[in-house]
Amino acid sequence: MKPVLSHPVRFADMPQRKVSRIRLVPDVGQLEALADRLDVDAFRKVLLDVELSPGPGRDWTLTGKLGATVVQPCRVTTEPVVTRIDEPVVRRYTPDLTTPEGEEVEMPEDDSLEPLPKVLDLGDVLEEALALMIPEFPRAEGAEDIDLTVQPPGAEPLSDEAVKPFAGLAALKARMEGGE
């Protein structure tokens, strides 16, 4: 899927001995499209400031900061919640990395390491980082917890202690030790 804000970078065309600085700022239409794509009410502003540094060897390092203001509904009250995001973004690209194949794959220790693409779209980096940083369950200030206790008429509601995995075994052990 093509990013809302496309900014392709060909590493072969980049200066090989100095840092390149790039800033992405989506316009109003792109902010609306990003909000639709990432399923939030709105983005008031989004800014990705990055530096692309060559080396070591044929590797490249992307470091920067993502800033955004996102509006989402509170998961309890549905009131709008405004969240400010200011987070670092780090990616390392290397031509020597192979993508593991198979049903079960062990995750690498360095989750910022990625295969070096011929063309890197910084719009993809922006969208991916933003999607990872948006709060999953935003809550309005002062929102009360909802009590979702349900039980049949006349029955006692389950307590937190009763739903623990070994609560039934503990009760059984207590009955056996008590001679019941």
Rank of each mutant, 00 (worst) to 15 (best):
K2G: 13
P3M: 07
L5A: 05
S6N: 09
S6K: 12
M14R: 06
K18H: 15
V19L: 05
S20Y: 08
R21M: 13
R23G: 11
P26C: 07
P26A: 05
P26N: 06
D27Y: 03
V28D: 07
V28G: 10
L31F: 00
A33N: 05
A42N: 06
K45C: 15
L47D: 01
L48T: 02
E51P: 03
S53G: 09
D59V: 05
D59I: 06
W60Q: 04
L62E: 04
T63D: 05
A68L: 04
V71F: 11
V71Y: 08
Q72G: 04
Q72T: 06
P73A: 04
P73W: 00
T77W: 01
T78E: 09
T78M: 13
E79H: 11
V81S: 04
R84F: 15
I85L: 10
E87W: 11
E87G: 09
P88A: 09
P88T: 04
V89A: 00
V89L: 02
R92L: 08
P95K: 03
L97Y: 11
T99F: 15
E103A: 15
E106V: 14
E109S: 15
E109F: 15
D111M: 12
D111F: 12
S112E: 10
S112H: 10
L113S: 09
L113A: 12
E114T: 09
P115G: 03
P117M: 03
P117I: 02
V119T: 14
V119R: 12
L122H: 03
L122E: 00
L122Q: 02
G123V: 05
E128T: 04
L130F: 01
A131G: 06
F137E: 15
R139M: 05
R139Y: 02
A140L: 01
G142F: 00
E144H: 06
D145G: 09
I146R: 08
D147R: 02
T149I: 04
T149H: 10
T149L: 12
V150A: 10
V150I: 10
Q151L: 13
P153E: 07
P153F: 13
G154I: 14
S159L: 06
A162D: 11
V163N: 04
K164W: 01
G168D: 14
L169D: 05
L169C: 07
A171F: 09
L172I: 08
K173G: 05
A174W: 00
A174L: 13
M176D: 11
M176T: 14
E177V: 09
E177A: 12
E177K: 13
G178H: 03
G179V: 07
